[in-house]
Design a protein around this nucleic acid. Structure first.
Lengths: 154, 154
DNA sequence: GTTGTATTTGCAACTGGTTGCAATTATAGC
DNA sequence: GCTATAATTGCAACCAGTTGCAAATACAAC
């Protein structure tokens, strides 16, 4: 149930924002794929079509679109934030710290916990799109010793 | 069961790293408080004692110490990463998106999920120190309408 | 206490992202 | 189709954090 390009623009208008060529282009680029894209990649792709687009515009619009819920962003830690058109149902990612493999899991896993927080603390946790780090099966198997040794002496 | 300054230095040596004045100072500053501190604040405090310490040294050592598990870092999203001496037991944070209130929760809440991931996907999730965003009880109550309107027209 | 050397530091240049502000432009009203 | 104007863009300066490299230094061996 991904929204079409036109749908997204219509929502933008309905919320009182203007439809500029830059925003259209940005949403078009995001709509082209169902993968996560970094701000940098997005800037690159936008500029491939229309090179004069300023980087601050891309950054500002990504922030805006995310805030409005037109796109979602996942924080993969270590300064990597990626964006995508809001797909449903929500999903989370298990990211391998070692090989960067990504396992998508649906958000049901967290439903209980989320409910628990609401009951116990009155806290409504937004668990739209989490990235959890760790080690995948393969890397756990491969990893002979923990990296508790000096990298230089390894 | 927070480790003492000397303990931490000893662990550093045992792992094959050198004890430099810069590292000692950094760990001392971290040990002074049980709050989370940003890299920038840490740099400031370190420099308050010994102004010649270079920022890249602070950043590099924070990364190292975190990797070695001597300190822990929480990613509060939006580019805010904070560090603290590794306290036990592990805890997580529920961070209010609106008023930035922070509720500390212990990690037991996630034990089941963590176990589930291991069973289902063979994935060993590191859930040391998570920050989950959302709205706290008070802000949920206060918040009359969602911010779906244009900020300029509000 | 010296010496040797690999680690660590300081530096300076760089990167990704942000901000304030003036110029441009989408859109509403006529 | 004009006009007015508030939203949006482009720009240039800036900021936090990173990187490569040469100089300094912790520490091990003697």
């Amino acid at each position: 149930m991904t929204e079409t390009h036109t749908d997204l623009l219509a929502r933008l208008v309905k919320l009182g924002y203007r439809v500029t060529p830059q925003r259209e282009l940005l949403l078009a680029v995001l709509g082209e794929t169902d993968k996560h894209l970094s701000a940098e990649t997005l800037l690159e792709r936008v500029r491939a079509v229309y090179p004069r687009v300023n980087k601050s515009v891309v950054y500002r619009n990504l922030e805006l679109l995310a805030q409005l819920g037109l796109i979602s962003c996942v924080d993969f830690g270590q300064g990597r934030v990626e964006y995508e058109v809001h797909h449903h149902p929500h999903h989370h990612h298990l990211v391998c710290r070692n090989c960067h493999a990504m396992i998508e899991i649906n958000s049901d896993a967290f439903a209980d916990i989320q409910h628990g927080f609401l009951e116990t603390y009155g806290f409504a946790a937004e668990m739209d799109h989490l990235a959890l780090f760790g080690l995948c099966r393969d890397c756990r198997a491969q990893m002979p010793v923990q990296l508790s040794h000096h990298p230089h002496t390894l």
